[in-house]
Design a protein around this nucleic acid. Structure first.
Lengths: 187, 187
DNA sequence: ATCTTTTCTAAACGTTCGTTTAGTTATTGT
DNA sequence: ACAATAACTAAACGAACGTTTAGAAAAGAT
C-alpha cells in the first residue's frame, strides 16, 4: 500500500459545514474552505469531488447533527409543548456559537429558492416535509382539534419556524425567546 | 451640446431593482443587468458608478416605491388593524408579480448579515428602526397595554414580519394569509 | 455643413472563481 | 532496504466576474 491520509474526513467535513452554514454557498470560496478545513484543494477534491458535492455532504452532515433534536421532538409525548421545546432547541446553537447563523437548511432554502438545483431542492423538501409531518402528529395529540385546524396550525408553525430561523441570525436571545412564547400563546 | 441619452435612468433603475430583488446582490451579474436593463455596461457605469452603488440606488428606489404602503400604515387610526393590513400589503407584490420575491430589504438583510458593508447596513437599519417606531406608535393606541407589553409585541411583530418576508418567497398565498391571521390572534 | 461633445459599441483589462495537472513527499507491504 | 502507491504541494488552467478603455456613431450648436 501507500501513504495514509493526514486528516480525518469527518472532521474536515464538520469544518466545511460550519463555514457554509455561516456564509452560504456562493459566498464561501474554495480558498476559504482550504484555510478553514486545513487541507489542500487537491485533498478536498479527492475526498469530496467538487464544491457542490461538498456542500451537499455538508447539508447531510447538518441533518444528522440535528437528528437528536428531531428525535427529541418525535419521541415527546406532550404535544404542543414538545414543539415549543423544539423551537427553543433549534435556535440554541446560535447562542452557543457565534459562527452558526440561523438554520443551515433554511438559509440554504433562501439562497437557493430561485435557482434550479435539483439536488439541493430535494434535500430541502425532504427536510421540510418530514418536519411538517412530525408537527402534524404532535398537534393531533389534542383530539379536540379538527383536521382543518391542525393543518392550519401546522402551516403556521412551519412559517414561524422559517421566520425564527431567519430572525435568529440577527435578533437577540431575549427577542427570540419572546417571539417563541408569543407564537405558542394561542394554539 | 451633443448626443442625448437613449434611455431613461429611472426606468432602467426600476429594472435593475427588480433583478436585484429577485436574485440578490451576488447572484446578479453585470451581464444579467446589461440584458435586463437593456443598455450597455458602459452606460450602466456612466449612470450609476459601479455595481455596488447601483445596488444602493436600487434599495433607495425600493424604499420610495413602498413608501405609499408605509404612509398608509402611518396615517391609519385603527391601531393593530392597520398593522395587520400593512402585513397584507407587504406581501401583495408577491402575488401580483412572480419575479418579486419577498421583501427586498429583508432579502438584503439576510444576504448581508455576515458582511461588513456599512452603506448597506445603514440603509437596512434605518428601514427597520423606522418600521419599529411606527409599530410601537400603533400599539400605543390601545392605552390598556403597559410599556413592556408594547415593546414585546412590537418585537414579536417585527420578527413575524421578517419571517413573513422570508416565507413569502416560497409559500402559497393561502398559507401566507393564514399565517398573518394567526399572528395577530396572539396579540 | 461642420465642429464639438457625449453616448454607445465592443473588445480587453486584471482578479478571482472552481478545477485540474504535474511533480514531490511520505508511508506501507514485501 | 526498496519498490509501489497514494497523499501531498504548488502552479496553472479556462471561464466568469466587475471594471475600464479606445474608437465609432450620433445629436445639438454655430
Amino acid at each position: 500500500m501507500a501513504r495514509t491520509k493526514q486528516y480525518n474526513e469527518a472532521e474536515v467535513l464538520e469544518k466545511a459545514m460550519r463555514l457554509f452554514w455561516k456564509n452560504g454557498y456562493e459566498s464561501t470560496s474554495m480558498q476559504m474552505l482550504e484555510k478553514e478545513m486545513g487541507i489542500n484543494k487537491f485533498s478536498i477534491y479527492s475526498s469530496f469531488g467538487n464544491k457542490h458535492s461538498l456542500f451537499l455532504e455538508s447539508l447531510k452532515h447538518y441533518k444528522s447533527s440535528v437528528n437528536s433534536v428531531f428525535n427529541k421532538l418525535k419521541n415527546g409525548t406532550k404535544g404542543i409543548e414538545d414543539i415549543k421545546q423544539f423551537f427553543y432547541d433549534s435556535v440554541s446553537s446560535n447562542f452557543k456559537d457565534n459562527n452558526l447563523k440561523g438554520c443551515f437548511v433554511t438559509n440554504t432554502y433562501n439562497e437557493f429558492s430561485e435557482t434550479e438545483d435539483d439536488m439541493v431542492k430535494e434535500q430541502m423538501e425532504a427536510f421540510m416535509t418530514n418536519l411538517k409531518q412530525i408537527i402534524i402528529e404532535k398537534l393531533k395529540i389534542d383530539t379536540s382539534k379538527n383536521e382543518e385546524t391542525i393543518l392550519r396550525q401546522a402551516n403556521y408553525l412551519l412559517l414561524a419556524k422559517h421566520g425564527l430561523a431567519a430572525a435568529s441570525r440577527v435578533n437577540t436571545k431575549q427577542e427570540i425567546e419572546d417571539y417563541i412564547e408569543m407564537t405558542f400563546k394561542n394554539l
